[in-house]
Design a protein around this nucleic acid. Structure first.
Lengths: 199, 199
DNA sequence: GTCTATACTGAGATAGAC
DNA sequence: GTCTATCTCAGTATAGAC
């Protein structure tokens, strides 16, 4: 079974970036792992940044489709009422958890990318519809929350998910998948906490 | 007023790392900003990593002392009972919020460091007592929570705080300080959510 | 179209002169 | 304590073999 150069590069990049982070992984490590020439990376991908984009795009597409399908299903169940926040988080996190079961390295790559400050780029490139649909659903579930509080809580929740994606170990130790249910509860509890002053 | 070379390097490093992140900031940018020679960095600090440590240690010490003092005060108020979690988060976050008001760049450096995967190093070097005291106080406030759930929620909360430290803009736009009260509520709500299965 | 060999610029680090 | 020169390795770019 012959593996095309392009795929060998993507596989090696995904594995090494998951283990070491993006900045800490050199192209020379990647080509050594893939058994190809340095220039092949630039021929197929153009740059290190675009190689990272390709690693993400290869697997994030199906995850996002599944997320949107689940959210659509839950919205239909709600019959016009706001979708319960637990369901919204479930629709967002479960598809990534499923992928984590079979491709734990990919999930860590996603976490690394967010943690290393490339959140905005990735979000705008691969998540525009997911972002709009999920933020909108959450907003409808908390109509009385102020805009400032809503925006702050969105950022808090991004922090929870990205940190968990980065820090979760291999599937054998539970990994991201084992944390999905706990995250759904934690995020729901935090998001639904009444706004306002403390004693 | 003459400023010693060492301090000029620290100031320039803090400013540039806050703006660009640690990995993205080169020593050559730092020495240009400080107006010193490249070798001066290695003479005074040994390496880029140790320069970062020095940037952190310069300001994190007083913050951690204030944190511990506040926690001690709240524990005395509680007279042996578990400290309310809002108080625990208040003791941890308020001192950093105060620093954010006067030194917003330092707070962003802290966030960057966590976000770029150096959490463990920084935690073990500068936070051992803070970590032990605060995790212990939280544990006593939720005695019935399972160890697995407690550990997961600690990670979730670290994600919230580190992401907020990194992403919060300059003090003029509110910054970290403006998010402290919101964070306390969000973290309390998430941490106190009952453990267990969903419907 | 695909890939190899090689060169270019800028990074962190170090030795040794002063 | 400070600075010059230099080392290695990073990402990138290009010329040309097949």
């Amino acid at each position: 079974m012959i593996v095309p150069t392009k795929q060998k590069i993507l596989d090696a990049a995904e594995r090494l970036i998951a283990e070491q982070g993006y900045a800490a992984t050199s192209l020379r490590q990647i080509i050594a792992g893939a058994g190809v020439n340095l220039a092949a990376v630039h021929y197929h991908f153009g740059s290190k940044d675009e190689l990272l984009s390709s690693v993400i795009e290869r697997k994030v597409g199906p995850v996002n489709e599944k997320r949107l399908a689940l959210l659509t299903e839950y919205e239909a169940e709600a019959k016009g009422a706001p979708v319960p926040v637990e369901k919204i988080f479930d629709a967002f996190l479960t598809p990534m958890g499923k992928v984590a079961g079979t491709h734990p390295q990919f999930v860590r790559v996603m976490g690394r990318v967010v943690a290393e400050g490339m959140l905005r780029t990735v979000l705008e490139k691969n998540f525009p519809e997911v972002q709009a649909r999920f933020f909108g659903a959450l907003r409808r579930s908390a109509p009385k929350m102020s805009d400032e509080e809503f925006e702050a809580r969105i950022q808090f929740m991004i922090g929870v998910v990205s940190h968990t994606m980065t820090m979760c170990g291999p599937a054998s130790e539970g990994g991201f998948e084992a944390r999905v249910e706990r995250m759904i509860r934690f995020l729901s509890g935090g998001f639904l906490t009444p706004e306002g002053g403390r004693k």
